[in-house]
Amino acid sequence: MAATTDAGVFDESGLLAKAREGDSAAFSELVNQYSRKIYRLAKHITQNDSEAEDVLQETFLKAFEHLGDFQGQSKFYTWIVRIAVNESLMKLRKRKSDRTVPLDEPLDTGEDTVVREIAVWDENPEQQYSREEIGQILDEAVQSLKPAFRTVFVLRDIEELSTEETARALEISIPAVKSRLLRARLQLREKLTRFFKRKGDDVFAYL
């Protein structure tokens, strides 16, 4: 297969060049490489399995269609993330019964940074929870965030895009990314503390 070079490294630019010439195996290899992450991203934003599947398909079909427009100035992954984010946000906007906060609504009310729970965490939460349980706790915490916070957190801290890449993908300003990220992180910290705090402990252990 054309997936790797002799050294076993994933040869993305080689695959892209072949895919541009219509090599279907090369394009399929790119799909294979990134589909898990794109599906996770779509599920996080849409919170809906069937919409996430639509987004997954649309993302790669559009990527193939517009492969000629991809200049290679950004990473291929960043480029397809932007397509996936656009497709996911379109799904959110299409929902007529959607009562969630619109993505462009000002959110800087300050209330979201209120901290209620201050407790140190258990050093080894794995002893208390199974891997599956931890995965579920993390997923549910993200799902409970408002879409505007959730999308920024997912792009910055799960998909590990830079602040600038996140701003471009969501078409919002850099200060908006930073402000939403702070709030998302604090809200998640609060939610996770309920599960991961050291039992019978509080902040005064530090005094």
Binding site: A119, W121, F153, D157, R189, L192, V203, Y206
Partner: peptide, 17 residues
């Protein structure tokens, strides 16, 4: 100490994801 704990647990939140 409160801000220390908030900093530490926020850092762990990011790391765990």
């Amino acid at each position: 100490p409160n801000c220390f704990v908030i900093l530490d647990t926020t850092k762990k939140t990011i790391e765990v994801y």
